[in-house]
């Protein structure tokens, strides 16, 4: 099955980002294709390269990037939401790209499922 994912909350503050990641891993390991993860609202902070958690904590931003590289997942940060919150190309983490909301609508059209993780 082809799956798209929408993440609406920032890392560390909210469980949504962790749940989305864990769901993506489980889906990929079960043989499904996760084509795109779209980050919206505070979810755009998942793509900030400036993130630096304490050493004993999980690396939310980095693990998204690794997942994308391993399984060819398209990580898209919404440009309008990102600019509002100070995320731009200069501080965009590896594996992410910035694009428009059309990429979210397209993910809904082209996948069998669009799974939303938010508040």
């Amino acid at each position: 099955m082809k799956i798209g994912i929408l993440v609406n909350e920032g890392p560390y503050t909210h469980q949504a980002s962790d749940s989305a990641y864990q769901f993506a891993v489980a889906a990929l390991k079960a043989g499904h294709k996760v084509t795109r993860v779209f980050f919206y609202h505070d979810g755009v902070y998942n793509g900030s390269s400036l993130t630096e958690p304490p050493r004993d904590d999980r690396l939310i931003v980095e693990r998204w990037g690794k997942l994308a590289a391993q399984y060819e997942v398209d990580l898209v940060v919404c440009v309008a939401a990102a600019l509002r919150r100070g995320i731009r190309e200069q501080n965009l983490a590896e594996g992410f790209r910035i694009s428009g909301l059309g990429q979210l609508v397209e993910a809904g059209i082209q996948n069998d499922r669009l799974v939303v993780f938010g508040d």
């Binding site: 919206y40 309008a80 428009g100 609508v105 059209i109």
Partner: peptide, 12 residues
């Protein structure tokens, strides 16, 4: 921001 997605969806 939800309303912004709705307006974009109209283009599709």
């Amino acid at each position: 921001e939800a309303l912004e997605v709705v307006l974009i969806s109209a283009a599709f």
